[in-house]
Design a binder for these strands. Structure first.
Length: 985
DNA sequence: GCGGACTGCTTACCT
DNA sequence: ACAGGTAAGCAGTCCGCG
């Protein structure tokens, strides 16, 4: 009967509907004042003192409200206790289900009322809350202030570095640490006198001739520092302009002809200059931050693994080891989600105005318990639940929105980690604005508003919407498992759990339904960080450690920002001057190859023309992380490609594009990317699978290798991205050129060895029934000549190639299937086609020999004919026929043409449905001028069946062509039949 | 003035 | 704002045709 960290205010202290009058008064007063923001009611908001009303109108409202609550209570009592059946749609025998008994609240209810179902028990708990009992064992939070500020760290204190930020009031850098011995957040305000600065090549005496700089009131001083100019491979003396506040950098950097390192955020600079590693443990010693690493690291093993590297690289490898080995912190965390009333269906309330009340706030805690604060409002009925409420759910009903918000603030202020889904752009801004409107001063709010997101005064805020939006996370960490960025889509894909479905608008839900809906959202949000033994949480910690970005930054920025940060940190550590984008371009030149796709900057990978047909026993070879390996082996980096200076002129030419690479000095990029690659391949991939390690360790190491994967996979792309500050076109171009060269050479060798290559894309080769020895020989050739690993990636029992590139079906020995690139698996293919396709795939995957294909052929023929007839007879519903397509920009921005999904979106707008970028539009093809209609507005009878038959054809032709069948031989006859005797059936 | 050929736009996929 | 390559469907335009 333990509640763990389920912190809660004791029921006695909280206002109940029965004494709802006093807070109602505040409600009314503030409704009156709601236009004026920041009214003088701090003490009221905190203490809820009773105020006598002398106003008749108010008295009347109060009376009505009391009546309402009386009614509500009566109703709830009736629904929940006297006739539990009325709300229990799924009944569970109380005796058989022992799980119920584990919960304190529900146990009591069970004994007292002989309640038989979980749903009823949950609702009875709700009644318990109303009556003010049932939560007495919960940890008392009531005495804690509504808004807590973290304590200042003293010398000797320790904590994991989570975040750095700039304190504008004190004009200093601040580090936010999590002290795992107390479970609390502590702050370290910089005591070293660290100031914002940037660099220029103007000597100090010349600088005095620029009064805009030296006379600026934020100007503090200049220093001369020596840096190493990696691009030119020489020392460089630069002038460091030290200023008072970060915004002065933004002004003064434009006043000098050339500025360096002037675009780095102050709180990042603090990390880089002191060599801090976010996510690692620090101690305050001598008023400074000092690594408090208690991991014992066996570096001999690392030295052994990296023995072929140069000395400097080995040392770096050893230095990095602790960030992969040190155990992660495990702070308490809470997930939060709010629901807002809106009179408009299908429209999201605007946080800028926060015009409507917050009607419910849900919390999910790590120990599995949940809480919902719900606002009782006139007309809100208790309702009937179709499904059960979660166990260990605590419900509080507020008669006053402001009290609800303040209690919410109390919880937000007491957790080191607060998780939200879109809290940056909805929940927290809404809470903030709403609180302001209700007269709560911002000093009594738990938020710390920054330029780009909403943080907290006490803990840190992770917005999972932002995190899962990071493309590298989506692609490399989760293999594109989710494709839309809604809570429902992500939770469905990663957890297999869904949001509560509601038919009407949130505002129309009954109290119990609203509670269930809201609680589920918070629960899913928390679980997205918890599942797979805290995968997401540990991934975040590792990404912080590798990128050197604080937690609130790393969870909100794309992979290019992570890579940039790691590079900046390494530049600073080594005393390198961080070059400007212009310098790199000027000294390195542009690209030399012609891209195949119009508008691209340089040529990419090779895709071999695939065979067509079915091939048994196909071995797929794959160059292990080809591009990162090339970067490592060919010493590619912005300073080594087309170098300004190369000691000893040990230059190598990149095949095809003619760039020169200096081999006598180790390229920085080559070193960093190579190290991460080797760490992953040689150590952590193995550790993740090692049977000798306990499960928990294996999972940690698996996350370590996944974090590295995210990193190295993106390391090539950023150098070809104009937006990347170290953008170096010749580097990116050299990578793909070497990739093309490598696969071509390997292809040649393969044919020399008599291996039959069916297909290949970028870094893979599909071999048909290869001879073992020849295969081995090919691998050795690749290792010897290019220093790359050519691995057996997969072995297919058979592959069906349609003849198109990036388009095949591979069936493994165990019957599992890879479907690549086929129309059937695209999102914009109607569901009924995907379903039918999946059925056919199921049968195909059972095929074991060429002979068996004969049988399958006739099956497919029959099945498709059946489907064709079904389609003609309109046996599918609108949802199954719907085409789902993403709207990638605002509707008005489609100026060049009007694609069909945009047409459908416009129709939605006309009937008042909001459509925004990122929305998935569902539409069907209909007869008539427009050609399409959104599913919401269409009727089955107006569907244009001919168009769907075309889609069916294009879906199945890709399969049929592989197994040597034609569409016409299957459907041709039916089609004629349909033409001549459409009503024959 | 009509219709097929062609190009460009947009989306979704593969590595 | 990590890259380029491939496919498909549609919108809009070009171009030849007495």
């Amino acid at each position: 009967m333990k509640y763990g960290c389920f912190q809660y205010m004791p029921a006695k202290k909280r206002k109940r509907p029965s004494d709802g009058t006093r807070s109602l008064l505040f409600y009314l007063r503030n409704l009156k004042n709601s236009e004026s923001i920041g009214v003088d009611e701090k003490q009221h908001s905190l203490e809820n003192k009773r105020i006598d009303s002398g106003n008749n109108a108010i008295d009347e409202v109060l009376r009505q409200r009391e009546e309402y609550f009386e009614e509500l209570l009566k109703e709830l009592r009736r629904k929940t206790v006297t006739s539990p059946q009325s709300i229990a749609s799924t009944r569970v025998g109380a005796k058989r289900d022992t799980k119920i008994g584990k919960d304190l609240v529900i146990t009591e209810v069970e004994k007292g009322n002989q309640v038989e179902s979980k749903a009823a028990a949950g609702a009875a708990a709700l009644l318990k809350s109303l009556q003010g009992g049932g939560v007495k064992e919960l940890e008392k939070l009531g005495d804690k202030p509504l808004v807590r500020l973290p304590k200042e760290a003293k010398n000797g204190d320790e904590g994991f570095l989570l975040q750095t930020f700039y304190d504008g009031d004190q004009e200093v850098a601040v580090a936010k640490l999590y002290d795992d011995s107390t479970g609390e957040i502590i702050l370290y305000h910089d005591k070293t006198g660290y100031k914002p600065y940037f660099l220029t090549d103007i000597p100090p005496d010349k600088l005095r001739e620029i009064p805009e700089v030296v006379r600026h009131k934020g100007f503090e001083r200049v220093e001369v520092v020596e840096k190493f100019d990696l691009l030119r491979w020489q020392k460089k003396r630069v002038t460091k302009i030290v200023v008072r506040t970060p915004d002065v950098v933004r002004v003064l950097r434009d006043k000098v002809p050339r500025a360096w390192e002037a675009n780095i955020k102050f709180h990042h600079n603090y990390i880089y200059d002191y060599g801090l590693i976010p996510g690692m443990k620090y101690r305050i010693a001598d008023n400074r931050l000092e690594q408090a690493n208690d991991v014992i690291v066996e570096d001999n093993k690392i030295r052994e693994v990296f023995r072929d590297e140069d000395k400097e690289t080995i040392e770096l490898a050893v230095k990095w080891l602790p960030i992969f080995e040190a155990p992660p912190p495990k702070p308490r965390r809470v997930a939060v989600d709010i629901e807002v009333f809106t009179p408009f269906k299908g429209r999201v309330p605007d946080p800028k105005t926060a015009a409507y009340p917050i009607i419910s706030v849900a919390f999910a805690f790590e120990d599995g318990s949940q809480a919902v604060f719900v606002l009782a409002r006139p007309g809100l009925q208790p309702g009937v639940l179709r499904d059960k409420l979660p166990e260990r759910l605590h419900i509080e009903i507020f008669d006053d929105e402001r009290s609800l918000i303040l209690e919410t603030f109390r919880i937000l202020s007491n957790y080191p980690i607060v998780i939200s889904f879109n809290g940056d752009h909805f929940d927290f801004p809404y809470l903030y604005m709403r609180a302001l409107r209700l007269g709560i001063d911002k000093d009594y709010m738990p938020f710390r508003i920054t330029k780009n997101y909403v943080s907290l005064k006490y803990g840190v805020h992770i917005d999972l919407y932002q995190f899962f939006n990071i493309k590298a996370i989506q692609a490399y960490a989760f293999g594109n498992a989710y494709k839309e960025f809604t809570l429902d889509a992500i939770a469905s894909a990663l957890l297999g759990e869904h949001k509560v479905e509601v038919e009407s608008s949130i505002s129309d839900l009954s109290m119990l339904e609203l509670i269930r809906y809201n609680a589920r959202d918070a629960y899913l949000t928390l679980k997205l960080t918890n599942f797979n033994n805290n995968l997401v949480w540990t991934l975040i910690i590792l990404l912080m450690r590798i990128s050197k970005l604080p937690i609130e930054d790393v969870t909100r920025s794309q992979v290019s920002a992570w890579i940039k940060s790691l590079f900046y940190w390494e530049h600073r550590r080594r005393g390198y001057l961080i070059p400007t984008r212009e310098e790199i371009i000027k000294l390195k030149g542009g690209t030399k190859s012609e891209a195949i796709i119009k508008g691209k900057k340089y040529q990419g990978a090779i895709v071999l023309d695939p065979a067509s047909g079915v091939f048994f026993n196909v071995v797929v070879l794959d160059f292990a992380s080809l591009y990162p390996s090339i970067i490592k082996q060919w010493n590619l980096s912005y300073e080594t490609v087309n170098p300004v200076y190369c000691p000893g002129s040990r230059l190598v030419e990149v095949p095809g594009v003619g760039h020169k690479v200096c081999m006598s000095i180790r390229g920085l990029t080559s070193q960093i990317v190579g190290l991460l690659r080797d760490y992953r391949v040689k150590i952590y991939k193995k550790k993740a699978k090692s049977k000798e390690l306990p499960k928990e360790k294996r999972e940690w190491y698996n996350t370590v290798q996944a974090a590295m994967k995210v990193y190295i996979n993106a390391s090539y792309g950023v150098f070809g991205a104009t937006s990347f500050p170290l953008y170096a076109p010749p580097v990116a171009e050299s990578v793909t050129a070497i990739g093309r060269y490598t696969i071509k050479q390997t292809l040649e060798k393969a044919s020399e060895l008599g291996l039959r290559v069916l297909y290949g894309d970028t870094d893979s080769l599909f071999l048909w029934n290869p001879d073992k020895n020849s295969l081995r020989e090919l691998q050795d050739y690749v290792e010897e000549n290019f220093g790359l690993d050519l691995e057996v990636d997969k072995v297919y029992r058979f592959v069906t190639f349609s003849g198109l590139k990036k388009n095949y079906i591979g069936v493994y020995e165990d019957g599992s299937v890879d479907v690549k690139g086929l129309v059937a698996k695209k999102r914009n293919t109607p569901e009924f086609l995907k379903k039918e396709f999946a059925e056919i795939i199921k049968v195909i995957s059972s095929v074991r020999s060429a002979e068996e294909f004969i049988k399958v052929r006739s099956y497919i023929r029959e099945r498709l004919r059946l489907m064709y007839r079904g389609l003609r007879d309109l046996e599918y519903n609108l949802d199954e026929l719907a085409i789902k397509m993403a709207l990638n920009k605002h509707v008005n921005e489609y100026t060049k043409n009007t694609p069909q999904h945009v047409k459908a979106a416009r129709q939605l707008l006309q009937v008042g449905v909001q459509v925004l970028p990122g929305d998935i539009i569902s539409f069907v093809k209909v007869k008539g001028k427009e050609g399409v209609k959104p599913v919401q507005l269409a009727r089955l009878t107006e569907v244009d069946i001919e168009k769907y038959i075309d889609s069916m054809k294009s879906v199945f032709e890709q399969l049929l062509s592989a197994i040597n069948m034609g569409w016409d031989e299957i459907i041709g006859a039916s089609r004629l039949e349909a033409f001549f005797a459409p009503r024959a059936r």
